[in-house]
């Protein structure tokens, strides 16, 4: 039953073109900054520069170029992910499709997990394709960077995206307004990031620090222990929130049926 549901999800995302436009947008996000920064001197020359002022542009290393892509994902990538997932369950509940699906012998757990998996497969595929594009441009324009580093970026930053997807699925089970889901997900992410920077080194293990530690990894070449702690905490939180989503989904539907 799970595979049937999962195939239905994939088909639906294919029909509403998510499988086409999300990877394309993720590629654009990844390659935008490396290309623009590479041509920045020419662009500044073309607009005439500032009278006589010499603008010192930093020389970007390959690690900087990869981090440019990651920082695009931290802002616009997260925004797209949240907007994309805001209706995953909530809009089906609103439109009544949910009742049609749950008439069949589908357990609530499987339903939530399938929704989560289909969202993750879309985001991870797009993210991997995007990072490969970023790697290609980095090697071409800025210099060599080992492929294992790229894999590390994909794995650790993918955890942060997974974390956001899971939060979104959790709010999806709580409310039937997609707008509210998006608002709450972005709000939660902002609060986590704010608290993390507020407490500084005491919250080195926070999932929000994954990209900071990644930068360290790219520059020094060794895996900082804080990165491993962040990864473990992220995985634990993801599992916890997923269980919470299943629980809240059951509660909400149970209350409604009574």
């Amino acid at each position: 039953m799970t595979t049937v549901l999962f195939k239905k999800e994939l088909l639906e995302n294919w029909r509403n073109k998510k499988w086409i436009w999300v990877p394309l947008v993720f590629i654009l996000l990844a390659i935008m900054d490396p290309i623009t920064n590479y041509y920045l001197p020419e662009i500044l020359d073309a607009v005439g520069g500032i009278d006589g002022a010499v603008i010192e542009l930093p020389d970007f290393s390959p690690a900087d170029a990869i981090m440019m892509s990651v920082s695009q994902y931290s802002t616009l990538g997260v925004l797209v992910t949240v907007l994309l997932s805001m209706g995953a369950i909530s809009s089906e509940r609103k439109s009544g499709v949910l009742d049609l699906v749950l008439v069949k012998p589908v357990s609530y757990t499987k339903f939530v997990v399938t929704k989560w998996l289909s969202l993750l497969s879309l985001i991870w595929s797009s993210f991997i394709i995007g990072m490969l594009a970023s790697w290609y441009y980095t090697v071409l324009l800025y210099g060599e960077i080992p492929f294992t580093m790229l894999l590390a970026v994909i794995f650790y930053y993918g955890l942060w995206l997974t974390f956001i997807c899971t939060i979104s699925i959790f709010y999806n089970t709580l409310t039937h307004s997609p707008g509210l889901v998006a608002f709450l997900t972005i709000g939660t992410t902002l609060v986590i990031s704010l608290l993390t920077s507020l407490f500084g080194t005491r919250t080195a293990w926070s999932p929000a620090n994954l990209s900071t530690h990644l930068q360290e990894l790219l520059i020094t070449g060794d895996v900082p222990s804080a990165l491993i702690y962040s990864a473990i905490v992220s995985i634990l939180l993801i599992i916890l929130i997923l269980f919470a989503s299943i629980y809240s989904f059951k509660q909400v539907l149970h209350n409604r049926n009574e």
């Binding site: 394309l24 654009l28 390659i31 290309i35 594009a133 441009y137 324009l141």
Partner: peptide, 13 residues
């Protein structure tokens, strides 16, 4: 040839 993919992807979108 470097910038083309960027423009092509925008166009496809």
């Amino acid at each position: 040839s470097l910038v083309a993919p960027f423009i092509v992807i925008q166009f496809i979108l």
